[in-house]
Computed example of a mutant assay.
Amino acid sequence: MALPEIIRQLLENGVHFGHLSKHWNPKMKKFIFGKKKNIYIIDLEKTAQKLEEAREFLKSVAQNGGKILFVSTKRQLREVIKELAVMCDMPYVCERWVGGFLTNFATIRERIKKYITLKEKREAGEFEKMPHKEVVRLNKELERMERMYSGTVSLEELPQCVYIVDPKREIACVREANKLSIPIVALIDTDADPEVIDYPIPGNDDAIKSVKFITQYLVKGILEGLEKLDRPTPKSEEKQDTHLSSEEGK
């Protein structure tokens, strides 16, 4: 019997490979199909089900104009996550999670504003008028801020949702989101706790191919939501509609 298309794609992209059996979280047992050569094999039917649930949720968030913060600081995944977040015009953190990013967002937002201001000054040539030592100091500060905040410039308020790759690694982000009741969608391997995640997607969270496939699938849902985004009708159009209605009534 032929495999369903989504299961075949998950299989081809290695989403079913979990961690070594000695590195596991018992709470992931319900998502495990079996074990091969001391490596857990993830149940792809359950992955497909959870993936679809997560996609529909993210689609609804996007459709309602919400921001989804992408978080993945693994070196090998940074470019993939950044590229896909940019594709759907969502903010991202791919270098280092700054403590208090969510729970102390007002302060973080002020730092982001400072980063934007410094960048604008440099681009406007204002650094050229400053003493050399000051320019060196500001350039170093800008480089540091670029790594931490460049992906979150568009985030003017707390995100409506967080998408995380490997919640065990990004536990600080998980704790902050949980504290603020911000929903979490996460690609979660056999070594993590699914109970702290609102929409867990069991799967390989280390391999680039696996992470890219899962994230692309979710991004397609986000893009579908953005296409149906409920935008307020411009006042000019409202006036025109009112005028047409009154004309028709004459």
Rank of each mutant, 00 (worst) to 15 (best):
G65P: 03
E95Q: 13
P234W: 11
V86N: 05
I116V: 14
R109F: 05
E224Q: 12
E12R: 15
E227V: 02
W24V: 09
C161M: 08
E12L: 13
N139T: 12
S60K: 13
E95G: 02
K220T: 04
R111E: 08
M90S: 05
L3K: 15
Q240N: 06
P234M: 07
E141W: 07
D89I: 10
M28C: 05
K29I: 12
P91L: 09
Y149S: 08
L102N: 03
G100M: 10
R96A: 12
F31L: 02
T233C: 08
K114D: 08
S72F: 00
L77M: 09
M87T: 06
M145C: 09
L69D: 03
R169S: 07
L84M: 05
L44T: 00
Y217D: 04
N64K: 15
P202Q: 06
S72L: 01
L20R: 15
D241E: 04
S181W: 14
V196E: 15
Y199C: 10
Q240L: 15
N139D: 15
L11M: 14
K228Y: 02
E123T: 04
L229V: 12
T47S: 12
E83H: 07
I188A: 01
D166R: 05
G14W: 04
R144K: 14
R109V: 00
F105L: 04
K239N: 10
D198G: 13
R96F: 01
E110Y: 09
W24I: 14
E247G: 00
R137L: 13
D205R: 00
I222D: 00
E157W: 06
R55W: 02
V98D: 00
P194H: 10
Y115R: 10
K59M: 08
H243E: 14
I222T: 00
K121F: 04
Q9I: 10
S21H: 11
I6A: 07
S245G: 06
